[in-house]
Amino acid sequence: MDLDVFVMTHRAEWDRLDRLLRRGRRLTGAEADELVVLYQRAATHLSLIQSSAPDPTVTGRLTQLVARARATVTGTRRASWRDAARFLTEGFPAAVYDSRRWWIPTAVLSTLLAAVIGWWIGSHPEVQSAIAAPDELRQLTRPGGEYETYYSSHPAASFAAQVWTNNAQAAAMCLVLGAFLCLPVIWILFLNMANLGVGIGLMSSAGRLDTFLGLVLPHGLLELTAVFVAAGTGLRLGWTLIDPGPRPRREALARQGRAALGMAMGLALVLFVSGLIEGFVTPSGLPTWARIAIGVFAEAAFLTYVYVLGGRAARTGETGDVDDWERSAELPTAA
């Protein structure tokens, strides 16, 4: 191999790769893909020179160039506090806003289902007797019964941690299992709404629906919203597998999957807040109106966060997906 001819032939590609690497995160999607191609070619060139015509100067330059390109392509960059702030102010709220056409109908239909189940149980004594014996029902619904003592049966901190863990797991299952054609998400939603409906029905039949709602609403508004967002996103992910739209199925599913994973982290924070309310506010001695007001405020704050910050970010093109330059790292990087 004539080294001089080889260098003259490929020097423009190496210089172009060097210029792209110097631009860092300012690359467009097309430039990021070009960087990957040039990196693969440079790695091949380095291998050819080392095996056929080793030259310290050329080899040294290409070794450094390939190492820098590999670091960029394989994503060795570490996340910073700026990334976390951007995720919380743009990525996460934009993803929730972007999926609103899925989670809002999910919330409405699920709430109606819980109300119907509650009405059915509350107005049919035979259904109540099929759920539990009369003595057990009285134990559940009487003043100071299990529905009321549930929220104060453990220390507030440990109870909040337990609630947060359980709810985060449920939300994560909705997000992940949506890829299985939506069916597991529908089942998880049904179980949660059936459980809520049973509480509504039994407490209403005992004339204590106001007490039940006073216990559920402070934390339940935010908690159920997070579950509905997770379920709606999971359903959207499953539907993408069925109907990917104009994109190839693999690309569309990857895009929704990446956004769903990011949303899981954001919803964990939302559920942490609802867990704190359930652990410290719900069983507190505050008047019912005050506890419900705290829950309404938390819900209103979350919706404002989604529609103001999320809507603004979504209008600039933010979807909650990773940046183009990070997406290109998914391409093969071996020479």
Rank of each mutant, 00 (worst) to 15 (best):
A179I: 12
V216R: 05
H219L: 03
L181N: 14
N195F: 02
G207T: 01
T165P: 08
T225L: 14
M173E: 09
G199P: 01
A179Q: 08
V198H: 00
F180V: 12
T165I: 12
N192V: 03
W164L: 07
S204C: 07
Q169C: 12
L181Y: 14
V216M: 11
G214L: 03
L209G: 00
L215V: 08
V163P: 09
L209A: 00
G178Y: 05
Q169V: 12
F180W: 06
D210N: 06
L224S: 11
L181A: 14
L213I: 05
F180H: 09
L224T: 07
A168M: 11
V163Q: 12
A170K: 15
V163G: 09
H219P: 05
H219Q: 14
A179K: 11
S204H: 12
L191F: 15
A161H: 03
G207N: 02
T165R: 15
G178M: 06
T165M: 09
F212H: 03
L175G: 07
L175D: 08
I188Q: 04
G207R: 13
G214D: 01
R208C: 00
A160V: 01
A206R: 04
S205W: 01
N166D: 09
D210G: 03
L189V: 15
V176A: 15
A226N: 02
M193A: 05
R208Q: 00
L181G: 13
V198E: 00
A172H: 09
N167H: 08
H219F: 04
M193V: 05
G197I: 01
M173H: 10
I186C: 11
R208L: 00
M203I: 04
V163A: 12
L221Q: 02
M193P: 06
G178T: 01
A226K: 01
A172K: 10
I186W: 06
W164C: 11
W164Y: 08
N166M: 11
A160F: 06
F180I: 15
L175H: 04
E223D: 03
L215S: 04
L215C: 08
C174H: 14
G178I: 08
N192L: 13
L213R: 02
V227W: 13
L209E: 00
L217W: 02
